[in-house]
């Protein structure tokens, strides 16, 4: 079986980000971040490539805006992601939906060569009350999003963003608090099980221009 990627429009999808030419403010962000990029040649190049992919998503109108990027040690990117974000329900208004989240993305050199815990990549800097079974709710300085029991070595950041989008919009989330993988917020998991009719919070694809892959035989 042979698979091909086709898009209905000429606008690129996730697999075509390397063809996107950065320009304007996005290009300035890239150049600014590259001023201090330390580590081995391979690690420097990897950080640049991952950041470029993220910026390319912003360039083609994806639901993110890069607020800050740091290539000096670990790769750290702060992005604002536009999507419905579930916030802790109140007695008066029930579930509240935010329209964006500010995310901290952390990508270490270790992540390129060893599988990492699903909790080690995405931190929710704002809002501070995300109501999600896979988002921590303890006394940590920021909320942590769990992407699963293990993230394979070298997993691209663009896919981490895609998973984050799917998770926070509740298109793909783990609700079963009895699952061995566990949940990070048991109370939220049980709440969402009782309110499954609210799912998902959005049916918008991550990149609107990307059509489903057509598989040709």
């Amino acid at each position: 079986m042979k698979s091909t990627t086709s898009t209905s429009s000429n606008r690129p999808g996730l697999n075509d980000l390397s063809k996107v030419e950065l320009s304007g403010a996005v290009l300035m962000k890239m150049r600014f971040a590259q001023l201090l990029n330390a580590g081995s040649t391979a690690w420097q190049a990897r950080k640049v490539a991952e950041l470029r992919d993220v910026l390319a998503i912003e360039q083609i109108g994806g639901p993110i805006k890069v607020l800050a990027a740091d290539l000096s040690g670990d790769l750290k990117i702060t992005v604002e992601m536009r999507m419905p974000v579930p916030r802790r329900p109140t007695e008066e208004s029930g579930l509240r939906l935010g329209d964006h989240a500010v995310l901290g993305l952390l990508y270490t050199f270790e992540a390129t060569r060893q599988p990492q815990p699903g909790t080690s990549f995405v931190y929710i800097l704002d809002p501070g009350d995300v109501w999600h079974p896979n988002v921590s709710s303890g006394n940590l300085p920021v909320q942590v999003l769990c992407l699963g029991p293990s993230v394979p070595a070298g997993f691209p950041l663009k896919h981490i963003l895609l998973l984050t989008y799917a998770s926070l919009t509740m298109m793909a989330a783990q609700f079963d608090d009895l699952d061995p993988a566990g949940v990070l917020n048991r109370e939220a998991a049980q709440w969402w099980q009782r309110n499954a009719h609210l799912l998902p919070l959005s049916r918008e694809p991550f990149l609107k221009t990307t059509q489903a892959r057509k598989v040709a035989t």
Partner: peptide, 14 residues
């Protein structure tokens, strides 16, 4: 300090 304030690998320029 949150995870975004910390870095396991740090540029000596810091």
């Amino acid at each position: 300090a949150g995870p975004m304030d910390a870095s396991g690998a740090v540029a000596t320029a810091a």
